[in-house]
Amino acid sequence: MNPREHQTIEEIPAAALLERVQKMRSEGWRLVHAACTRLVADQEVNYCFDRDGQSLDSPDSATLRGMHTLRVRLPMIDPELPSISSFYWPAFLYENEMHDLFGITVKGMAVDFHGHLYTTMVPTPYVTKEPDHGD
């Protein structure tokens, strides 16, 4: 049937994040979402961007480009990231989530909940609790 979306991933160092994000923004990409993944020894943060042809100026263009992901790898202990909320204001929700569930210190968030966005019994449950497959 319809071909699947073309999704690309670009791995960048944490230091280059702000610069890349600024470039994405000036090229007219919108932030789709941001999320962390716990890997075996470290974790990664994905920022997904989309510029889908129907973007602001050309409502009827049919060229769909799929998504682009910027990926940053972070250590499991004391991970730190700069906030991208100065470029994409709504990113503060994702960043607070990263802080509350994955223990990533995000510096300079537009709105900082200081760990009170999610109240969980175990702090940062996604990293402190080892995956447990039960049976």
Binding site: D100, V111, F113, H116, L117, Y118, T119, T120, P125
Partner: peptide
């Protein structure tokens, strides 16, 4: 100021 997490189910 929103606060979500009231029904966070993990």
């Amino acid at each position: 100021i929103p606060k979500i997490g009231y029904v966070h189910r993990g």
